[in-house]
C-alpha cells in the first residue's frame, strides 16, 4: 500500500476510533488506578487496534471492539487469562443481605470516592454498564466472561456501591430515601 493510501487509512482510523479515547481512558483509569499506566494502556490499545484495523468490519460496533482490545492488552500484560474474583471478595459479596435505599443529594466527589472503595473486579463492570453504557453482552464480550457472570458482578457491585454510599451518608448525617 503506498504512502497516500496508508495516510488515508490512518486518517479514517483516527477519525473513527480516537473519538472514543476519553471513554476508554476513563475505564483504563479504573483498571490501572494510575494515570501514567492508564495512558500507556490506551496507547497500546490504539496501536493494537490500528494494527488490526484491516480486520475490523466498518459499520459494526467499533466502541465495543476497542474495549475488547483494551482488556485483551491489559490482561495480557498482567498474565491473567480471565477476570477472576479473589475468594475473599466472593465471600464479602455473598454476605450482603441488606440492600439499603439509595441515598440522595450526594456530591460527585462522594460518589466517586465510594466507587473507588469497592473491589476493582466489581468496579470495572459497574463503570462499563452505568457510566459507559455498554450492554451486558458487550461487557461479557470485552471481559471475556459469561453473560451470567457479568450480571452477577453488576448486581453485587451496584449493591456494594449503594452500601458504601449509605454508610457514608449515615456517618455524615444525610437523609436516606425512604
Amino acid at each position: 500500500m503506498d504512502q497516500k493510501d496508508k495516510l488515508q487509512r490512518l486518517e479514517i482510523f483516527e477519525a473513527e476510533a480516537l473519538g472514543f479515547s476519553s471513554q476508554l481512558f476513563r475505564v483504563a483509569l479504573r483498571v490501572c488506578r494510575d494515570r501514567e499506566k492508564a495512558e500507556d494502556l490506551i496507547q497500546e490499545t490504539y496501536l493494537q487496534a490500528w494494527r488490526s484495523f484491516h480486520r475490523f468490519e466498518i459499520g459494526t460496533n467499533l466502541r465495543a471492539w476497542l474495549y475488547k482490545i483494551l482488556f485483551n492488552v491489559h490482561y495480557g500484560e498482567i498474565r491473567r487469562d480471565r477476570l477472576e474474583l479473589m475468594p475473599i471478595e466472593e465471600t464479602i459479596a455473598e454476605t450482603i443481605a441488606y440492600d439499603p435505599p439509595t441515598p440522595q443529594n450526594l456530591t460527585e466527589e462522594e460518589v466517586l470516592a465510594a466507587l473507588e472503595r469497592i473491589p476493582r473486579d466489581f468496579q470495572v463492570p459497574v463503570v462499563l454498564a452505568d457510566v459507559e453504557e455498554l450492554s451486558y453482552r458487550e461487557i461479557a464480550d470485552a471481559l471475556r466472561i459469561p453473560l451470567g457472570t457479568v450480571m452477577s458482578r453488576l448486581h453485587r457491585g451496584r449493591k456494594l456501591l449503594r452500601m458504601e454510599l449509605a454508610n457514608y451518608a449515615r456517618g455524615a448525617g444525610y437523609q436516606i430515601a425512604n
Binding site: F25, I42, V111, L165
Partner: peptide, 18 residues
C-alpha cells in the same frame, strides 16, 4: 434516587480526559 446516582456517577467519571 438510582437514576440520580447514575447521572452523578457519569458526571464524576466524565471529568477524566486523555
Amino acid at each position: 434516587a438510582r437514576r440520580s446516582l447514575r447521572s452523578s456517577l457519569r458526571r464524576a467519571c466524565s471529568k477524566e480526559e486523555l
